[in-house]
């Protein structure tokens, strides 16, 4: 999918994925430490460090704290992460000493399925865990990232297959069944406060905890987002239109990903 017509009728030449990555990178302004998942979150976090937030500490579950890769890594354990990190610690240490006590202010995740309460499924598609329609990679670090980071940003492409009314399997808890559920479970972080897609931005309604559309990316019709969402999507008052990517944002992003797409094929079937 290419471009979107912007105000004045001119047609831009950025892709929907680029808009998504740029929007996700902007969301990291003002944050200190980010626990980064692989794929789309990693590209966005690296863009943020280049552009908006040079002091952002990138933490990967492989145990690299303060990694400064020159290109987004293909895996969360690429050698350049260790070579450029402030510190490399063991995997038990990264989860027990750094993530678990709530030292990391933002967790950056993707999803194979995401529901109206921001719950994430990366385990199985289909109602029967033992006989899944699609076996996905599983939990990885996500359940504890979603529980223990100060807040969670989700970056994921918008489609009815992904944006479902209820996830088939709760791998990582968003707002659970709705208001009060995180508190009842004793989860310390605020949960998924921001969902950035290739079509727009969703944020939880403060009272109902249900994800509502708060911004459309330039050139995207509301109806397009509604038909790509598997529940009756609420639209927040004062729906915004995202600022299009600047030339500088596009230059740095394309410089960062010269040979690879910004895409995340880890859920490819």
């Amino acid at each position: 999918m290419t471009g979107g017509s912007v105000a004045g009728g001119s047609v831009s030449d950025w892709s929907a994925d680029e808009m998504m990555t740029v929007a996700a990178a902007r969301a990291l302004v003002g944050h200190t430490a980010c626990f980064v998942g692989i794929g789309l979150p990693s590209t966005a976090a690296n863009l943020a460090r280049r552009l908006h937030n040079p002091d952002l500490t990138l933490i990967y579950e492989s145990g690299t704290i303060g990694a400064k890769p020159s290109v987004p890594p293909l895996s969360i354990g690429d050698g350049e992460l260790a070579e450029t990190a402030d510190a490399v610690v063991s995997v038990p240490e990264i989860f027990n000493y750094w993530l678990q006590p709530g030292r990391i202010d933002v967790g950056f995740l993707s999803a194979a399925q995401l529901d109206r309460f921001g719950n994430i499924n990366t385990t199985v598609v289909g109602p029967d865990y033992r006989r899944p329609k699609v076996r996905l990679p599983g939990a990885g670090g996500a359940p504890e990232i979603a529980a223990s980071c100060g807040e969670v940003f989700v970056v994921v492409r918008h489609s009815p297959r992904t944006f479902v009314d209820r996830v088939d399997f709760v791998t990582s808890v968003g707002f659970g069944d709705g208001p009060g559920h995180r508190e009842q479970l004793g989860l310390r972080g605020r949960g998924p406060v921001l969902v950035i897609t290739d079509l727009g931005v969703l944020q939880p309604d403060p009272d109902r905890c249900e994800l509502a559309l708060t911004a459309l990316h330039p050139g995207i019709e509301l109806e397009t987002v509604r038909s790509a969402t598997g529940w009756d999507l609420a639209v927040a008052d004062g729906l915004r239109v995202s600022e299009p990517p600047t030339a500088e944002e596009l230059r740095v992003l394309r410089d960062l990903t010269p040979t690879q797409s910004t895409g995340d094929s880890r859920w490819a079937t």
Binding site: A139, E144, A147, V170, T171, V173, G176, R182, R188
Partner: peptide, 10 residues
């Protein structure tokens, strides 16, 4: 012992 898995289907 850890803080983990709470609220998930695991």
């Amino acid at each position: 012992v850890l803080r983990g898995y709470v609220g998930t289907d695991l």
